[in-house]
Nucleic acid binder design. Structure first.
Lengths: 336, 336
DNA sequence: CCATTTCACTAAATCGTTTTAGTAAATATT
DNA sequence: AATATTTACTAAAACGATTTAGTGAAATGG
């Protein structure tokens, strides 16, 4: 049951391997191969169930028809959904996606980039960690197409597509205010990356406009602590600030921890506290009560980022850097 | 910034490319290359930041140091967790994992197998769809190592590692009975695959032993209907069987749909109905009340399946087929 | 001191494609 | 009819590694 190659077809069809290659790649016409020969080659290929070796072809052409997708955590539903859509989009244009998670670890991120580089992927879609800026510059120097998603570096000239985080939290907070809430808190992580900063800024600005911003109502948590520590920290925070009557969680895993904290605290939602979280999640739909969210435009982000990547791949020297903001969707459920 | 190859090193170090290859692959010693030359080659490689092309090396050796992982749905938390552990295990032995989802679609599964075959993966870990038996036989005929997980074909000689589904549902149902429940239902899917059959059989046997099995208390749903249809079907079923006082869901997505149904039905858990589901999930921990589950031994399954795969890869002609059953864990929460 | 081994390397074939530069025969041009 | 062009292919050189079969020099043996 040996592997059958282009050579076997050439022999059986009694033509040269060049001819076979042209036919297989649909260049038969262009190379003026006669219809009869084209047919014969195709038939033989069919009969022998020929599958081209993409390894050999990659070696020759330098193309792998694959892209690398580096996300923060593939087991987080937001990234899983994103990956799924990106993979589907890629398949449409006959590309394969290699995905992997950084776990927000910078060293691991660099390793992943190196390993994808070694696998010769043709482009990168990355949710960068805080210190990945130089690594990304390196990729650009190597002429590798890169698109950042979810976050970016303000001073780096790289295409990116992210949600309009500022607008998302600004309008969420405004909505809370419109419902009569006055003591609105935010729970964020400490990463300091731009997307998190913007979520915070939207929150702050919305409150300042109404003159009800209170700087004690911000809780910043470390990304790398475990879930129980997160819950404990949130419990502490709310115990110390009993007047808070609404809260915005800046990421789904923060919201999930928050809900567990409220259970311990025996807060009733929305009577005691209104809740809204970034990123939709099965649990938010299922929770009693259901939780309002600012849902990311996952499909839009996926489609646009593949599109930007492709435009770079087809013409690296002369594509325009695009910085794309996609609006999120405020989904109001029972928690407000 | 061109790619640097083994040739460049050979030139700089003033040795042949064979010598470089031996040194790079740690065969310098064995090939009687002098320490001085070894050092020189290594230094040059280091200086030029040489990264071997795995494509060229794959072409020559036929090895890719990669395995294919085909799951049902990577966005299902169970499979996502499984994939994560498998990837970590693989990385430990310097293998790379390509993962993809079948969506329980047989045609897609076959395509995926072909595409992984074409990518020359060295082994397969697969959660097969119903009709994948011949495809898998083909893989074996091609001398490709295969391990099935989560389910398998009773009559096929392939290694597999699955949870002890029978025991899982048997003991879950016994537990429900011990808590005084008498009208216990099961919600399963129609796939008819062995793992689902066993879950049902454990349920049936446990009830028959007590003489309280009622064949009307089984609801079978199609995998491919959307979530709302699932919820509606469950609502219908419980409306028609108002005496049911406990239910076993055979998969996490069924449990999730069930919980939404109960919300519509305004059933109180566990007062009106006790609930237990296969496969743990964030939402089950977070639900009010928290939901009891039969948790799969994800880590065990992942580790064992990689191990079986490796044993096949290192010696395809003389490995033993192993059929491994791993016990699940009954996690009792508030829903009973 | 010549034959044999060992030592320290190297040449060249190979993996399966793609693609450029030909080539011989058929056709068109003048 | 002689030359130019077109048609329908093919030969052979890459791509970047691995590995087998050498090779010339030094070491050893008798």
């Amino acid at each position: 049951m040996k592997k059958i190659t282009i050579r076997d077809i050439a022999k059986q069809a009694e033509v040269s391997i060049s001819t076979v290659s042209f036919v297989i790649n649909g260049k038969g016409e262009k190379m003026a191969i006669s219809p009869a020969v084209i047919k014969k080659v195709q038939d033989v290929a069919q009969k022998l169930q020929y599958k081209p070796s993409m390894i050999a072809s990659s070696l020759r052409t330098g193309k792998t028809r694959s892209i690398g997708l580096i996300v923060e955590d593939i087991s987080n539903q937001f990234f899983a959904d994103l990956a799924r859509v990106i993979e589907d989009e890629a398949k449409n244009i006959n590309y394969r996606v290699f995905y992997c998670s950084t776990g927000d670890d910078n060293e691991r991120s660099e390793e992943l980039v190196q390993s994808l580089l070694q696998a010769n992927v043709e482009g990168f879609i990355i949710t960068p960690t805080r210190n990945l800026e130089k690594t990304i510059s390196q990729l650009l120097k190597l002429q590798k197409p890169v698109v950042l998603i979810d976050r970016y570096f303000a001073n780096q000239k790289v295409s990116h597509v992210v949600m309009d985080n500022y607008e998302g939290s600004y309008s969420a907070v405004k909505y809370l205010i419109s419902k009569g809430r006055k003591n609105i808190a935010v729970v964020n992580n400490k990463s300091g990356m731009v997307q998190m900063k913007l979520r915070e800024k939207g929150y702050v600005d919305a409150l300042k406009e109404e003159g009800i911003y209170n700087e004690n109502y911000t809780l910043l948590l470390d990304y790398h602590i475990n879930e129980q520590s997160r819950i404990d920290a949130i419990i502490d925070f709310f115990r110390q600030n009993p007047k808070i009557d609404a809260v915005l969680f800046s990421a789904n895993y923060l919201g999930l921890a928050g809900l567990q904290a409220f259970r311990t605290l025996e807060y009733r939602i929305p009577e005691d506290i209104s809740v809204i979280s970034f990123d939709d999640h099965d649990s938010f739909k299922l929770h009693t009560p259901t939780i309002s969210v600012i849902a990311q435009p996952i499909e839009d982000i996926a489609v646009k980022s593949i599109q930007l990547l492709m435009s770079q791949m087809s013409n690296f020297d002369d594509f325009k850097i695009e910085k794309v903001l996609k609006k999120g969707t405020l989904i109001i459920r029972e928690s407000i």
